[in-house]
C-alpha cells in the first residue's frame, strides 16, 4: 500500500509540474507557430519580445517605475509587443519576402533583431534583476498537489488563449484572410486580400502572444535581457515536434514536451533533461522532420 501511495505522489507531482510547463510552452509556441504558418519563416525575435514585454510591464506596474498597477502594465506590455512585432515585420521580414532564400535570410535578420532588442533592454533597464508581481497571491490545490495561484492562471490561460486564437482565425474576416494567405498566397491576393497587411497583422498578433508569455514568465522567473532565450528554444522544439504548420499539433507538442520534461526532470534531474530534450529533438528532425502528425 505504501508503494502505491508513493507512486501516486510521484505521479501527482509530475502531473502538476508538467501541466504548468506545458501551459507555458503553449503560450510561448503559439505565436511562433502562427508566424511560421502564415509567413513560412521562423521568427527568432520571439524570445526577445518576451523579455521586452516583461520589462515594459515591470516599468509600468512597479512602484519604482510608473506605479500604474499590474493590470495597466500588462495591457501596455502587450500593446508594445504587438507594435514591436509590427516594426520587426516591416524592417526585418517584409523587405526580404519573395527572395529564394527567404527562410534562411529571415533567420539571420530576426537573429539580429533579437540581438538588438536584448541589448537595447540591457541599455534601457540595466543589469539589475527585476521581477513582476504575481497575478494572484496564494496557492491552489490540484490533483493532490499544491501549485501557486499564478501557475493556476497560466494553466487556465493557455487553453483559453488557444481557443480564442482558433475562434479568431475561424470566425473573423481577418482571421480567414490570414488563413487564406497562409494556404495560398497567390490565390488570396487574386481574391483581393492584401497579403502584406495580413502578414503584418499575423506578426503583430504573434508578438502580442510572445508578450503575454513574457509577462507570465516575468512573475515566476527573474527578468533579464536573456529571459526569452531558453523559452525560444523550447518553443522551436514544440513547434517542430507538433509538425510545422499545424496549430493543434503545436498544442499537443507543448503538452508532450511539458509532461515529458517534468517526467524526465523527476527521474533524471534538471541537467540531464535538457540534454535529453535536445537529443530527442535532433532525433525527431532526422526521423520525422514533419513532426508527430505531419505526413512523411
Amino acid at each position: 500500500m505504501g508503494t502505491l501511495d508513493s507512486i501516486q505522489l510521484v505521479f501527482q507531482s509530475i502531473f502538476a509540474s508538467g501541466l504548468v510547463l506545458a501551459s507555458l510552452y503553449v503560450l510561448m509556441a503559439a505565436g511562433l507557430a502562427l508566424v511560421w504558418n502564415t509567413l513560412g519563416i521562423f521568427n527568432f525575435t520571439h524570445g526577445a519580445l518576451m523579455a521586452a514585454a516583461a520589462y515594459v510591464a515591470w516599468t509600468v506596474a512597479d512602484p519604482r517605475g510608473l506605479a500604474l498597477g499590474l493590470a495597466v502594465g500588462v495591457v501596455a506590455a502587450i500593446l508594445v509587443a504587438a507594435l514591436l512585432g509590427f516594426i520587426i515585420n516591416y524592417l526585418l521580414v517584409a523587405p526580404f519576402l519573395g527572395q529564394k532564400q527567404i527562410v534562411l535570410i529571415a533567420v539571420m535578420t530576426t537573429l539580429s533583431g533579437a540581438f538588438f532588442i536584448e541589448n537595447s533592454a540591457l541599455l534601457l533597464w540595466g543589469p539589475r534583476i527585476k521581477q513582476l508581481d504575481k497575478f494572484v497571491e496564494g496557492n491552489v490545490r490540484i490533483a493532490g498537489t499544491t501549485i501557486s495561484g499564478h501557475e493556476a492562471i497560466i494553466i487556465l490561460l493557455a487553453p483559453l488563449l488557444m481557443l480564442g486564437l482558433w475562434a479568431f482565425l475561424r470566425f473573423t474576416w481577418t482571421g480567414s484572410a490570414i488563413r487564406a494567405v497562409a494556404q495560398n498566397r497567390d490565390f488570396a491576393e487574386l481574391s483581393g486580400v492584401r497579403v502584406q497587411r495580413m502578414y503584418a497583422i499575423a506578426f503583430a498578433i504573434a508578438a502580442a502572444l510572445a508578450g503575454l508569455a513574457g509577462i507570465m514568465l516575468g512573475a515566476i522567473r527573474f527578468i533579464t535581457p536573456g529571459l526569452g532565450g531558453e523559452p525560444l528554444l523550447k518553443a522551436l522544439i514544440v513547434v517542430i515536434l507538433g509538425g510545422l504548420g499545424s496549430m493543434p499539433g503545436t498544442v499537443l507538442g507543448a503538452y508532450l514536451v511539458g509532461f515529458g520534461e517534468a517526467t524526465s526532470t523527476y527521474f533524471l534531474g534538471a541537467y540531464w533533461t535538457q540534454a535529453v530534450l535536445f537529443l530527442v529533438f535532433i532525433g525527431f528532425l532526422v526521423l520525422r522532420p514533419n513532426g508527430l502528425f505531419g505526413k512523411q
Binding site: V103, L104, Y271, W272, A275, F278, L285, V286
Partner: peptide, 22 residues
C-alpha cells in the same frame, strides 16, 4: 534541407552546451 539544417546544427550546439553545464 533548408530550415531543418539550421535547426539541427543549432540544436547540436545547444546539446553540447547542456552537456558542458551538466
Amino acid at each position: 534541407k533548408g530550415i531543418y539544417v539550421i535547426l539541427v546544427t543549432f540544436a547540436f550546439g545547444q546539446l553540447c552546451l547542456q552537456i558542458v553545464l551538466n
